[in-house]
Design a protein around this nucleic acid. Structure first.
Lengths: 332, 332
DNA sequence: TCGCCCGATGTGAGCGCGCACAGTGTACGG
DNA sequence: CCGTACACTGTGCGCGCTCACATCGGGCGA
C-alpha cells in the first residue's frame, strides 16, 4: 500500500480512502491511485483489515450431512448469496449434531473471526447449542426445526408440504393415506407427520400407524415391503424421495402397480425423481431460496444487532409437483 | 494476550510461546499461562497471526456443481481431512468453468489469503486457468482430467472403471456393450468412453457408435429410448448412475426386462443406486478418498514449495459393485 | 476584505500477534 | 573463582491496514 501511495504521489490514507469508496476524494486523485494499484498489481491485505476493523467479511457455515442433496443445495444457495453480498464463506462440518461438536464448530469459526454463522441444522440440539454461542456472534439456523426458541430460523413449511401431498391423494379418492416416515428425532420428519395426520383428521379419514426409518431408500424399501403386504393400502406419502424410491421398488417386487394399485408421493423433488419408475409425484423444496433467505436474515440481524427482537422465523412454502406415481384410488 | 501475560505474570512473548508449543518454556510457567488463558477465556486472534506469519491456516476450495453427489462428497472429504490437518476451508463456487470465473474465484480466495487451493475441476479449462494463478499459490485439481499439464491432479481412474464395467458385461456373454455417454467435453466422460472402447477392441467385439448427453436421467432416458428400439442391444454401460436411471426407465417402458433382455451397468455408486429397479450394478468411486488424497497432495506441495517437481498425478482405483441389473446375455 | 466552512489530503497511533535479539539465572568445567 | 554454555524469559519492532484528528486551501456570505 505504501508503494501504491508513493507511485500515485499521495498518502497511504488516500489510498485507503479509494479502497473503501470514501466520497471525499477528488476524481482525478482517485483515478491516479487506481492506476497505481493496477500497475503494481496491488491487492489489499484483508488480514490486516480484519485486524483493525474486527470484521472479516467472512461467514461461517456449520454443515451437516452435506453430501445429501438438500444440505448441499442449501450450502450452495448460501454461498452464492453470500458472494453477491460480498462475503466469503468458511465451512465447519459436523459429523453428529450433539452439542459438543456444534460448539466446537462455532469455536473454530469464531477463531477465524467470522462475522456470522449459518447452521444447517435439522435438529433442535443445534439451535440449543447455538444459543450458547457468544452473544456477539449472530447465528441463524436453516433447515429443520420449525419451533426454535433460541436462534432465528429459516425452514421449509413441512406441515404445509405434507398437507399438499396428503390432500392431493385424498382428492384422488383414496380412503386414507399411509405414511412412510423419516427418523422420529428430526423435526422435519415430525412436522411432516403432523401435517399428514392433521389433514387426514380434518378429512375424517382414518389415521394409520406410522413406521419410522432413516432418510434413505433402504429404509423405504423395508417400510414398503410391510405396506405392500396390507391390501388396504392404496396411497403412500413418503417423507422424502429416497424413501419413496425404496417404497416403489418394494411395491414393484410385490407385484403392485403404481399408480394403478397404489399411489406414491414423495418429498424433496430430488433431481431425478421425475425419472423414477414411474415418475414420482412429490413436494418440491426450493433449497436455493432457503439458502438465500437465511443469508438475508443473518445480514439483517448483523446490521441491527443492538435491538433484540424475538428470534424471527421464516417459512418457505413448498409446492406439489404432480407426476405419474399418483392416480385415482383403485376402488373408485 | 497482554491481559493473559499480566495475569500469569509473564511477558506476551511467553504467552505466544505457549500458544505455539515452543519447547523452551518451563512446565510450571506453561501451566500458569494456560490457567490464565482459561480463566480469561482467551482466544488468540488469527487475523493478527496471519498478518505477521503470512499464512492463514485456511485452504480454498473452488467448487463446481457442488449440489451433485460426487462434488459434494469431495467437498466433504476435503473439508474433514483439512480439519484433521488443522486447516479451515473457504469455498468459492463457480457457475461455469470458464477461465474468467475460475480466475475470479482464485482471486477471491487469494484476497482472503488462503494458503493453498483445491479445485473441483472436472474440465481442463480449470487446470489451464489454475496455471495462471500466482505461482506462490499452490493449487491442486481434483476430479476430472487425467492428463494435466499444469497443476497436480487427483482423480478416479475412469478408464479402469469403464474397463471393469465393460469386461464384466463381456464376461457375462454379451457379444458387445453399448454405451450411454456423458457430455463430450468432460474428460471424465471421454476417459470412460476410451476405457470402454479399448476393452471392446481388445476382446475383438464390435464397437457401437456413441451418443452423448448430459449427466442426468433425462439424457439417459432419451438415450435409453433409442437403444431400446435396437433389438441387438443386450448390454448398456452408462457413464453414470443418473444416466442409468433414465435408461432403466426407458427400457421398462419399452417392455424390455432388466437384466433378462438387457443388462445395465452404471458409474458412481450413488447412495440409492442399490434400490433402483432392479438394483444397479455400478462402478464405485470413493469420493471421500479423493478428497483426502487431494488434500494430502496439496499439503505436500505446500511444504516443499521450493523444488519444482513435475506436476504429480494421483489415480484412485474404482471398484465394480455387482447387483441385479446385469446378467447373462439372453442369447447365451 | 475578512472569516468561516467544508472538501481534500496528510499524520500518527495502534489493532494483536510473532520474530529477532537481548537479557537473566543456573550448572558445570577448568 | 571465573568463563562458558544453556535453558528460560523479556524487549522492541513491524506485519498492512483503518481510525481519529490535524492541516491546508479555496469558495462564499457578510
Amino acid at each position: 500500500m505504501r508503494d501504491v501511495a508513493k507511485l500515485a504521489g499521495v498518502s497511504h490514507q488516500t489510498v485507503s480512502r479509494v479502497l473503501n469508496d470514501h466520497p471525499n476524494v477528488r476524481a482525478e486523485t482517485r483515478a491516479r491511485v487506481l492506476e497505481a494499484m493496477r500497475s503494481l498489481n496491488y491487492r489489499r491485505n484483508l488480514a490486516a483489515r480484519t485486524l483493525v476493523t474486527r470484521q472479516s467479511d467472512t461467514l461461517g457455515i456449520i454443515g451437516f450431512e452435506t453430501t445429501l442433496f438438500g444440505p448441499a443445495s442449501m450450502l450452495y444457495g448460501i454461498e452464492s448469496a453470500a458472494r453477491d453480498a460480498g462475503y466469503m464463506v468458511s465451512i465447519a462440518s459436523v459429523r453428529d449434531l450433539d452439542r459438543r461438536q456444534v460448539l466446537e464448530a462455532v469455536d473454530r469459526l469464531t477463531q477465524h473471526s467470522v462475522d456470522g454463522v449459518i447452521a444447517i441444522a435439522p435438529k433442535q440440539s443445534v439451535t440449543h447449542a447455538l444459543a450458547q454461542a457468544p452473544p456477539s456472534l449472530q447465528c441463524v439456523a436453516v433447515g429443520g426445526a420449525g419451533e426454535s426458541d433460541a436462534a432465528p430460523t429459516v425452514s421449509i413449511d413441512n406441515a404445509l408440504g405434507a398437507r399438499l401431498a396428503t390432500q392431493h391423494l385424498l382428492d384422488l379418492g383414496h380412503a386414507t393415506v399411509h405414511h412412510a416416515a423419516g427418523p422420529p428425532d428430526w423435526p422435519e420428519s415430525v412436522e411432516r407427520i403432523e401435517g399428514w395426520r392433521r389433514t387426514l383428521y380434518a378429512a375424517g379419514a382414518q389415521v394409520p400407524p406410522v413406521e419410522h426409518g432413516w432418510w434413505d431408500a433402504e429404509s423405504g424399501y423395508a417400510q414398503g415391503q410391510a405396506l405392500a403386504r396390507d391390501p388396504s393400502v392404496t396411497a403412500i406419502f413418503c417423507s422424502n424421495d429416497r424413501i419413496a424410491l425404496g417404497v416403489l421398488r418394494a411395491l414393484h417386487e410385490a407385484g403392485k402397480r403404481v399408480p394403478d394399485d397404489v399411489s406414491v408421493v414423495g418429498f424433496d423433488d430430488m433431481p431425478d425423481s421425475g425419472y423414477f419408475v414411474p415418475p414420482l409425484t412429490t413436494v418440491h423444496q426450493d433449497f436455493g431460496e432457503l439458502g438465500r433467505r437465511s443469508l438475508a436474515l443473518l445480514l439483517e440481524h448483523m446490521t441491527s444487532a443492538a435491538d433484540h427482537q424475538p428470534p424471527e422465523q421464516v417459512l418457505v412454502a413448498p409446492e406439489l409437483i404432480i407426476r405419474a406415481s399418483s392416480g385415482p384410488s383403485p376402488g373408485r
